[in-house]
């Protein structure tokens, strides 16, 4: 069973709807003691990274995330929380994956937010991307990006620069795009995650 970290950072209706369509059972994690009920965990998140981090702290779950040994998937801002720092709100984050989150603005000539379908290139046969071709389109909408890193980038995308479309460090995974909105490809990725042990 998949547990969703429930810290009120944005709307999770679309995520739970996608899990329902895929017959992936899930429940909500409201406090630390509930983490152990689940085989894998999703951290959703939309909006402002600094504000999301504060909500995670307020929920009392921030300290527990780093201790989790099961597969864990951060989505969008939920993934950015795994990094050390975000320029959004000049915020210190969970620092589980030693990367930084930067603003696109001022670094690229392209429009910000990065909105729409872009090609994602998995690295090192990352298991999240099993049964997906090498340049599959996923749906993005974000103004901040996680830097590319040869060790921790699980998949990259190009938008004015090369950035982390997905990251992995041990059992910690993150995707910048929205699998719950990325058509069949997104559903495959959620299924892949639900098969991780």
């Amino acid at each position: 069973m998949t547990g969703i970290i429930n810290y009120e950072a944005g709307n999770i209706f679309s995520l739970t709807a996608a899990l329902d369509r895929l017959d992936i059972p899930y429940g909500m994690i409201n406090k630390t003691s509930e983490v152990e009920r689940y085989d894998r965990i999703i951290i959703p998140g939309v909006g402002h990274a600094g504000a999301a981090m504060q909500k995670l702290r307020d929920s009392g779950l921030a300290g527990a995330v780093g201790e989790i040994k099961k597969p864990i998937l951060g989505i969008c801002v939920g993934m950015q929380l795994l990094t050390a720092y975000s320029e959004e709100g000049n915020a210190s984050l969970l620092d589980i994956v030693p990367l930084k989150t930067y603003h696109f603005e001022g670094r690229i000539a392209e429009k910000v937010p990065h909105t729409g379908w872009n090609k994602v290139y998995p690295e090192n046969n990352n298991p999240l991307f099993e049964n997906l071709k090498k340049d599959t389109y996923f749906y993005f909408v974000h103004s901040y990006f996680i830097e590319y890193n040869a060790t921790f980038t699980a998949a990259f995308a190009q938008y004015g620069l090369k950035f982390s479309a997905a990251i992995q460090d041990k059992n910690f995974f993150g995707v910048q795009f929205h699998p719950e909105k990325s058509g069949a490809a997104g559903e495959q990725l959620l299924l892949n995650f639900s098969n991780l042990r």
Partner: peptide, 11 residues
């Protein structure tokens, strides 16, 4: 909106 969000997998 709820019905669409439940059944459709694009934004």
């Amino acid at each position: 909106v709820k019905s669409v969000a439940r059944q459709v997998n694009i934004p």
